[in-house]
């Protein structure tokens, strides 16, 4: 039996003034699924994710979230500079009124998931870029969300840290099986992390292709596996076609 849909995006459009940013986009992500949205810079990927997360509303169409709580991981870690790592991660629970001791206990668990257990007492300034991103991920995971929305979380990191975090994130998803929607501009990252890649056109964003990635567990060697590379090639070609068509259209006008 197929898993039910966790998130359904139906004919969603969004305008900013006269500019159409998203044009009738429809897709769904099943419960426990992982889907990546890719497309050229400024195509509206983040706008779409923000609408799914409830930070923005579509002008037309609908977004249905059947699963429970969702959590957002932004492009920047967005940690409070005056709090320690432990208190930053505990923040969502503290804001819900949980006691300091209890929320810290839960935060310690979430921090161990992202392998930062030895940095509890450090402030964000004392953490590296990768550690800050892990902290942001731990904060998102602390409330045990059913849906995780990731907005280019690795964009500011160097390649080595990025690969390392991608592998940890995939491992975490395989273990916890929350529903994930990931926005990225890296096709390889999308293919490694997601089960399906949704390729968007340059603004206004429309779906130009949906590419399935190889099923099964991944590890460090998967980055170079032929099956994964096939998905990368198909998604890249689809994106390139969309960009070329858009450039031709621009040149004609």
């Amino acid at each position: 039996m197929l898993a039910p849909a966790s998130i359904t995006v139906e004919n969603v459009s969004r305008c900013f003034g006269e500019t159409l940013a998203i044009d009738r986009v429809s897709f769904e992500v099943k419960v426990g699924g992982c889907c990546a949205l890719i497309g050229p810079s400024g195509c509206g990927k983040t706008t779409l994710l923000r609408m799914i997360g409830g930070l923005d509303a579509p002008d037309s169409g609908s977004i249905t979230r059947c699963d429970g709580e969702s959590a957002f991981v932004f492009q920047e870690p967005r940690l409070l500079p005056w709090l320690t790592l432990l208190d930053n991660v505990a923040l969502p629970l503290r804001l819900r009124g949980m006691t300091r001791a209890e929320s810290r206990e839960r935060a310690a668990e979430a921090i161990s998931l992202v392998k930062l257990s030895d940095a509890h007492a450090r402030t964000p300034a004392q953490l590296s870029g990768g550690m800050r991103m892990r902290a942001s991920l731990a904060r998102a995971l602390i409330a045990k969300p059913k849906v995780l929305l990731l907005d280019e979380p690795m964009s500011g990191l160097d390649d080595v840290t990025r690969h390392e975090l991608d592998e940890e994130l995939r491992e975490l998803w395989e273990r916890e099986r929350f529903t994930v929607i990931l926005v990225t501009h890296s096709v390889a990252e999308a293919a490694y992390l997601a089960e399906e890649i949704i390729v968007l056109t340059p603004r206004p964003a429309r779906i130009v292709a949906r590419v399935a990635t190889p099923s099964g567990e991944r590890d460090a060697s998967s980055w170079t596996s032929p099956q994964l590379n096939t998905s990368v090639r198909i998604a890249s070609e689809a994106m390139l076609r969309a960009i070329t068509q858009d450039t031709r259209k621009m040149l004609r006008t």
Binding site: G54, L55, F72, F74, E76, R78, L91, P92, L95, R96
Partner: peptide
């Protein structure tokens, strides 16, 4: 950005 985070976390 932090204000948006607090909004997302439904902070009073």
């Amino acid at each position: 950005h932090l204000q948006e985070l607090f909004h997302l976390l439904n902070a009073s």
